[in-house]
Design a protein around this nucleic acid. Structure first.
Lengths: 132, 132
DNA sequence: TTTCATTTTTGTAATGATTACAATAATAAG
DNA sequence: CTTATTATTGTAATCATTACAAAAATGAAA
């Protein structure tokens, strides 16, 4: 499903900017920050403002089209993959990597309404360890 | 083990303020913010500054005596229970509750060095649901 | 098309938690 | 007691994010 269809599916009018932001997030696994999204799109869309990137990512996240990743306290990152998976922050290279998650038992929360689940790990990634 | 002993065990000089902050965190399950720690201790220690609360919580966390909980993007919360457990943020009452965690499989991260693991859920807690 | 209302986008200013830093106070060692 | 080191404090700076109002774009109705 493409970006415009995803937006329409959540009753969000598919403006050019919204499509551009969601499409960009759909085509990267880098979990970019606002700053990175802005710098990636600005060359193609010179009128783009950083405020719009803030507004749009916030809207997309409220509508469940993207996820806000707050693994790094400094800046929020965004991910168009809203399926259940964990995030690993490498302290060496700064990258945020996905990892698959299975078998979390949250029976302790019986009777709770659970809206979001986030799993954040940090450490040093395989590739950085190899470079030593 | 009391606060002074825990500090000494990590080669942190057990000053009165450090003991007071760590002791406070050890005796609450509320995951307080800097602001809350400051307001709780200030009546007993009138000379306490908020900067010291920042410095001390940062030091304690670096030494592994406390954990920084970043489940709420607005403010960092602190927890003296550094054992593996999940945190649940209730959107209704704002409380952060502990829950026990078992069976997370992170085999996908073989070959990584894992330093921290955080599991953050959000939703509505049982007690708020009952109040409806 | 023209008009009008609504929505989207933009730029600037405000917010507020956290950090930097330098000065002061307390502590430990000699 | 003196001196060096560490701890604490207060103020100023930082910087990501939000608030807000103006401008631009869009859509519906005539």
């Amino acid at each position: 499903m493409n970006a415009a269809e995803r937006l329409a599916g959540k009753e969000v009018r598919p403006s050019m900017l919204r499509i551009a932001v969601l499409e960009y997030l759909m085509h990267t696994k880098a979990h970019p920050t606002i700053e990175e999204i802005y710098h990636a799109l600005h060359p193609k869309i010179p009128t783009l403002s950083k405020t719009s990137v803030y507004n749009i990512t916030k809207l997309l996240t409220e509508k469940g089209l993207t996820k806000a990743i707050t693994i790094d306290e400094k800046q929020i990152r965004y991910d168009a993959d809203v399926s259940m998976h964990g995030h690993f922050l490498c302290e060496r290279c700064g990258r945020v990597l996905d990892f698959s998650l299975t078998g979390i038992s949250d029976g302790a929360l019986d009777g709770f309404h659970i809206h979001t689940k986030e799993v954040y790990y940090s450490g040093v990634c395989k590739s950085c360890l190899k470079d030593e």
